[in-house]
Design a protein around this nucleic acid. Structure first.
Length: 283
DNA sequence: GTCGATGTTATCAA
DNA sequence: TTTGATAACATCGA
């Protein structure tokens, strides 16, 4: 669920709401989500003050006052919720950070794909230098982005979803960005003209920026720290809109599968590449 | 009740 | 190199 704008919103929420608080106790009720081990996380965080919170791609990085870090990936359905310390464990809550002030930060994940790591400063260094993560979209210029695309022979959508190529994008924002740039998701990356590649990057960045401003897209599970969803889903042009009219040309939007992912597009505004993508002409 | 799909990603096989 | 299938899991809707 959470892609760059949603993760960024959660990070901003964490900055405003939990930085400066001291962790009194950590409770882990589903061991496997703490991949470095529940006991170690509890020891690491006990008595520590949360010093700062950052983001790298879709990873949330919580820095404690001694330089150790808690790294979190929300995967599909992970959430952070801040509220009064629970007495009974709420549904699907697997980790709870109890603060001294009576509130608690809860990690909730229905599908149990998300995870967290508790790392010493040295371990964190090792972890981040071993990360094979592409650049943040905002750190590239349209020109640099276009240069990266050139010479890539895979299809554009799976490439944009590949976190090693560029970090932070997921299914929603890839579909929206490709529509905004008028590019078919199955188009080979190196078949996108430089001009259009640059435009794709610009559109992508303004979509991400607007989405961050609206606190992300809530289509099912995503919510911010206080349990409130985002608003950017109201601005989606194609994602989840199969059968509705294209906002640009009026033709019915379609859904297909590209790289194993549900893909939303306008076949008129995003013309198929010559060779013959998924739903090409039938024999 | 069954089937298929869901925003992520690691892994394995072709 | 790239791709497709599969798995991890719970829930929802058709």
């Amino acid at each position: 669920m959470p892609e760059l704008p949603e993760v960024e919103t959660i990070v901003q929420d964490l900055r405003g709401l939990v930085v400066g608080r001291r962790v009194d106790r950590v409770s882990v009720t589903l061991n496997k989500v703490v991949r470095t081990g529940p006991r170690r996380l509890a020891r690491l965080a006990h008595g520590r003050v949360i010093a700062e919170v950052g983001r790298r791609g879709k990873f949330i990085i919580i820095a404690l006052d001694d330089g150790s870090r808690i790294v979190v990936h929300l995967k599909m359905t992970g959430q952070f919720l801040l509220g009064p310390a629970p007495t009974k464990r709420p549904k699907h809550v697997h980790v709870v950070f109890f603060f001294e002030d009576g509130e608690a930060l809860m990690f909730r994940d229905m599908r149990q794909f998300g995870y967290m790591l508790g790392l010493s400063p040295e371990e964190f260094e090792a972890w981040s230098s071993g990360l094979e993560l592409g650049p943040e979209p905002f750190d590239l210029s349209p020109r640099e982005f276009a240069a990266l695309l050139a010479g890539r022979r895979g299809r554009i959508k799976p490439l944009l979803l590949n976190q090693c190529f560029i970090s932070g994008l997921g299914n929603i924002y890839v579909d929206e960005s490709l529509f905004a740039a008028g590019i078919h998701p199955a188009c080979p990356a190196d078949a996108v003209p430089e001009e259009q590649a640059a435009r794709l990057h610009e559109r992508m960045c303004s979509i991400l920026e607007e989405a961050i401003g609206l606190r992300g897209s809530t289509t099912s599970d995503y919510v911010g720290l206080r349990g409130v969803g985002g608003e950017f889903q109201n601005r989606h042009q194609v994602y989840g809109k199969k059968g509705e009219n294209c906002p640009r040309c009026g033709l019915a939007l379609t859904r297909c599968v590209v790289g194993g992912r549900g893909t939303h597009l306008c076949e008129c505004c995003q013309p198929a590449p010559k060779a013959g993508p998924p739903s090409g002409p039938k024999p």
